[in-house]
Amino acid sequence: MTRYGTKESIAAAPQLVLYEVDRRTGVATITLNRPEKHNAMSVPMRDRIVDLMAEAETDTDVKVIIFRGNGRSFCSGNEINEEWGQRRPHERRRTLNVGYRYGADMAWGRLGFSQAISRSSKVTIAQIHGYCAAAAYFMIACKCDVVVASDDAKIGALEARFLGPAGAVASVHINRILGTKAARRTGFTAMPMSGIEAKDLGLVHQTAAVADLGSAAQSVAEEIARNPLQKLLYLKARIKAAEGVMDTSVPSITGLLVSHFLQTAPDELDFWKTAKEVGVGGALDADKKRQGAADPRVTQPAPTASATTTATERS
């Protein structure tokens, strides 16, 4: 099967996605190790996750798989400005075949890394701190069985600001996890949830101070892994079957694919141009200058009574 990516990015993937199995406890750990990019995932990194999930699937010593990230964040999502071998990179957002390959085959479709996680027969745990954005949110965190997060994690569809909100809003899965109002809020505002808010909404099972997060996730993983493998396989089979009848196993985010082909307004095209030059963070900084543009990295404070403009004042 063709593997996409540059020669360098393919060669780097094993160092950017680390894998470790503790055969005593039955807990495997997949660590995203690209801290200087908030662990943004390149195409070869996602391919490596697919390979590691397949390896864990047949490893009878592995009962539970933890996803974690090195550095300041769990993961900021997919790499935005990556040259992964597309024939016409400057036109990839307009080319359906390339878009399908990138969006579906490599990300959330049957061949993508997201379904490698959601369809795993082993128990999966997401250990989240810092940013858990975009693909990390709906393709890892929302696909794992158990989510353990730091209290102050920033979780959500931050990409909605520039890719559109479809991935967060038009997903049966996320609507079942968060409830419909919260799913729409995360998409239509692109504002992140804290770990505590995500727990209140039902995405996160347990929170901890960031310093204690690793031990908290490990403790949950080891407790689960003390069960016989066959019991866990049975329970996972039950979940997968039930998700099949609920239609949550199939990522209903065709809208995300559409998002890749949206005809963007000229000022939005500036975002992509800036992002290509100075990165997504720099593009967001520049974008704040646009009227009405919100920075999805900043949690908006609730409006106070004095700050609220009344209908009378507006008129």
């Binding site: 158990v146 996890i177 909404l201 689960i224 329970l235």
Partner: peptide
């Protein structure tokens, strides 16, 4: 399980089942 997911939401139902 579907009744559980509809009642307490999907991830809470998953954690209830697995843990």
């Amino acid at each position: 399980f579907v009744l559980a997911a509809l009642t307490i939401r999907l991830n809470r139902a998953k954690a209830w089942l697995i843990r």
